[in-house]
Amino acid sequence: MNVDTTTAIPAGANQASSARSKAMVDYNSFLRLLIAQMKNQDPTQPMDSTQYVAQLATFSQVEQSMQANTKLDQILQASTLSQATGLIGHHISALDGSISGVVKEVRIFSDGMVAVLESGEQVLVGPGVTITAPSTGDTGTESAG
């Protein structure tokens, strides 16, 4: 069976949810292990309860760090989308000045953004590019010349 590339799931689309699921499975496994350890400890030499609390606290800190990283990734994605939207309609010039024009669309990749100009040329958005606000006298029409 051939699968059209338009129906394929983009790489990384489910990373956040799978990482969250994996963390929850690991957390549940840790709790099961902790309970089993408590049930099966040697009655003549019981483990100190502070060790259990310390293990639980450490694992809880790791889980909270993972959740914070997930939230930071979501904020970063939202910021990138906002920046990309803000570029549309602006004039952009490449670092060396060889390519310039008005941004028609922005393509976002894992390693950066590429501005596609009305002429079809592409400019990598990064250090050294010049971005200026659209002129107020622009009617938005293109000349055929």
Rank of each mutant, 00 (worst) to 15 (best):
Q61N: 13
S93C: 01
G120Y: 09
F59P: 00
D42E: 07
I75P: 00
L117W: 02
N40C: 02
I88G: 05
S100W: 04
V106D: 10
S49D: 09
M38R: 10
E121G: 05
I88W: 05
G126T: 12
I108A: 01
N40L: 11
S110P: 10
D73C: 00
A115I: 07
G86N: 14
E142A: 15
F109V: 04
S49A: 12
T141F: 11
I92L: 14
A54P: 00
N69D: 15
A94C: 05
P43M: 06
I75Q: 04
A115L: 08
A68I: 01
G89C: 09
Q55L: 13
V114Y: 05
S119C: 08
T58C: 00
T132I: 07
D73A: 14
Q55D: 12
I35F: 11
S79D: 03
S93H: 01
H91A: 11
G126K: 14
L81H: 03
P46W: 09
D111G: 04
L56K: 09
G101T: 04
G128W: 08
A68P: 00
A68D: 11
A133N: 11
E142M: 15
I92G: 08
T80D: 04
Q64M: 10
T80G: 02
L117M: 07
R107T: 14
G101D: 03
S82C: 01
I131V: 15
V114H: 06
S135N: 11
D96A: 06
Y52L: 03
N69C: 05
A133C: 02
I75Y: 01
V106W: 09
Q41G: 07
